[in-house]
Write a protein that binds this DNA or RNA. Structure first.
Length: 604
RNA sequence: GGGGCGGUAGCUCAGUCGGUCAGAGCAGAGGACUCAUAAUCCUUGGGUCGUGGGUUCGAGCCCCACCCGCCCUACCA
């Protein structure tokens, strides 16, 4: 039994998420997790809303709300959207829970006690009226190099030079227009150089597996070369308190949002365990570094902009807590924590050739998409044409084409013609007579897809995986066309009748198999397909939203959770002879090509 | 500026260790069939593999230079 942690990127709760976000981490992580469960692994899939940090504060100010109110609102929207996409989280929680705060502080103390924090004084900009950190990008002014106006604190877009915000001429805050104040301020820096050796060893070992995507491993090793301490606290009043005397009480010093967000993988695992009734259960996914009997693997899903935090900052935190850096040390109560097995980063999805931009209205939100289209149509597009290895483009015409020509015409039609033929001729799944070589050939080809598709999903090659599954679909369509069962149906002879039963039985078996193979990609329709062929309609369990109490006395909140224990195994299951097959209704909605123009008009 | 990725048929892309590697799907053309959401099945066109050099018996594949697109390089997340 292998324990598999599916650690899915935490969506930032400053607004609703668009389809680019879920294409990058949502759908791929769900396909992987569903497959791994069916393949017999003990999967724990966790994520949550990332709710601290400056952008939330700003969005809250603009909306006239408190940051907590804004986070509450967006957390709910995001959770509902992810749930509606069928993403099978064991727990989707949030970073404003008491549990998360406590786990983050525990990690901080572990890192601190082992000596991997260094205190440094830095110069930084703050807003004089609020005392909050003013990040470089929120300061603008005249570029000291080229004299252009509107230069940002970190970089001038006109001349391209990188800047120090203190050098800007007439700097102003983009948040409220006031002149920033540059002050000396104390912060805790994560001593990354003291962890560099351990990080290098870990990355080398990971590289040797040959499993990481080449650009991810290369990028990760590259950033290791210029490693330096990184501030893990901020001058801000929205976040998690620094759990040290003299700091804890300071309302304007909080932990850096990225220090806390990645810890969510651990805190969510712990929260899941506490809610499951076995508070120590999380350790089976996290504490197997030192010769535990079972094996635990962890896969982190995210977009490429997050690689740094998952292949450097997060493993550094884990190493520091576990006492595995050059300064040594001992772990506290959580023990030696596992490092990521694989950082599975996707590239970016673009929209009609352009970057997503909510301000420029080059965007489609998950909610809007799902209000008009089937979740599986979108999931299919992402699996078949998503940004797996390189940036890919979402266009409405391609979405319509993929849906109509591949999903509806290929798979949907095979299901439909199979169910119709069986319904008309037998009304139930007929028993097979003697199989011919042609029958065996198609059955073998379809059964082989369990191996090929499963292997590809396990190696995070979902584009190829769904391609192989669809090749199986084409093969069965070819079988049907070749054998022309409708002609057999027109004959009265017993031999023809038995042959017809055999062919339809083979078709039903192939469709049932392909349905299982496709179920990680198309869970909603998998249930409908199963029901259409006389099954229970319970092939792909679905997540649900649940309102829960905070475990430690905080405010209640919605989570995503679910029971995924009833998934079928990743293997052929003989179809049930005698199961009733009714006249089918189409499962996939064919799209009107006119919607391309309608959708493009919405973007303008 | 530094690092990385990509530029292959009209479109979207595969091409593992240099040797049937010039491919698939879609669109286009022709045909078969009628069980099926006019779906399916068969046949078919064809591209200087970004540009220019180089290494090699042999290069989309390796090396160098250049052109174009994108990403990372932030105290945003």
């Amino acid at each position: 039994m292998t324990h598999v942690l599916s650690a899915v990127a935490w969506p930032y709760a400053n607004g609703p998420r668009h389809i680019g976000h879920v294409a990058g981490f949502g759908v791929p992580s769900d396909v992987f997790s569903r497959y791994m469960r069916m393949a017999g692994h003990e999967v724990l899939m966790v994520s949550g809303s990332d709710e601290h940090g400056t952008p939330i504060l700003i969005a809250a100010d603009e909306a006239g709300m408190t940051p907590q109110q804004l986070a509450d609102q967006n957390h709910r929207i995001i959770a509902e959207d992810l749930c509606a996409l069928g993403l099978s989280y064991d727990l989707y929680t949030r970073t404003t829970t008491r549990n998360h705060h406590a786990v983050v502080q525990e990690l901080f103390l572990g890192v601190y006690e082992n000596g991997y924090f260094v205190e440094q004084t830095t110069k930084g900009a703050i807003s004089p009226s609020t005392g909050r950190t003013l990040p470089d990008r929120y300061i603008e002014g005249t570029c000291p190099i080229c004299g252009a106006g509107g230069a940002r604190g970190d970089q001038c877009d006109t001349c391209g030079n990188q800047l120090d915000p203190a050098d800007l001429i007439d700097p102003v805050s983009r948040i409220n227009g006031e002149t920033p104040e540059f002050i000396e301020t104390q912060h805790f820096f994560l001593d990354l150089p003291a962890l560099a050796e351990a990080l290098t060893a870990w990355l080398d070992e990971r590289e040797a597996t040959g499993l990481w995507r080449p650009n991810v491993i290369r990028f990760s090793q590259n950033i290791l070369e210029e490693i330096r301490p990184r501030a893990m606290t901020r001058d801000i009043d929205w976040g998690i308190a620094v759990p040290l005397d003299g700091w804890r009480e300071n309302p304007t010093k909080k932990l850096y949002v990225w220090f806390d967000a990645v810890i969510g993988y651990l805190s969510a695992s712990i929260e899941w365990a506490r809610r499951s009734g076995d508070p120590e259960a999380w350790r089976r996914w996290w504490n197997t570094a030192d010769g535990a009997q079972n094996q635990a693997l962890s896969y982190y899903f995210m977009g490429k902009d997050n690689i740094t935090f998952h292949s450097q900052i997060w493993p550094a935190e884990l190493l520091a807590y576990s006492g595995r850096g050059s300064k040594g040390g001992e772990p506290r109560e959580y023990g030696v924590l596992n490092l990521p097995t694989e950082v599975v980063s996707s590239e970016f999805l673009t929209m009609e050739g352009k970057k997503f931009s909510s301000s420029k209205k080059v965007v489609i939100y998950v909610r809007d998409l799902l209000s008009r289209y089937q979740p599986d149509a979108f999931r299919y597009f992402v699996a078949a044409a998503g940004p797996e290895n390189q940036d890919s483009d979402f266009t409405w015409s391609e979405f319509v084409r993929r849906t109509n020509d591949e999903l509806v015409a290929g798979w949907g039609n095979l299901v439909n013609r199979t169910a119709t033929l069986i319904h008309k001729n037998f009304g139930e799944i007929p028993a097979a007579g003697e199989l011919t070589d042609v029958d065996r050939a198609v059955l073998d080809a379809v059964e082989a897809t369990f191996g090929t598709v499963g292997d590809l999903i396990g190696r995070h090659r979902q584009k190829q995986a769904i391609g192989e599954a669809m090749r199986g679909v084409a093969e069965v369509n070819r079988y049907v066309s070749d054998l022309e069962p409708w002609k057999l149906a027109k004959s009265d002879g017993d031999a023809e009748r038995e042959r017809l039963a055999t062919v339809l039985h083979v078709m039903a078996q192939c469709v049932a198999d392909l349905n299982v193979v496709l179920s990680p990609f198309l869970p909603f329709s998998a249930n409908l397909v199963d029901a259409a062929l006389g099954g229970s309609g319970q092939v792909a369990p679905m997540p649900r939203i649940e309102e829960v109490e905070d475990l430690d006395g905080g405010a209640p909140y919605p989570i995503i959770t679910g029971d995924y224990s009833e998934m079928p195994a990743w293997a052929r299951r003989p179809v049930q002879v005698g199961a009733t097959v009714d006249k089918p209704t189409p499962i996939f909605v064919k799209l009107d090509t006119a919607l391309v123009e309608e959708e493009l008009a919405r973007l303008a």
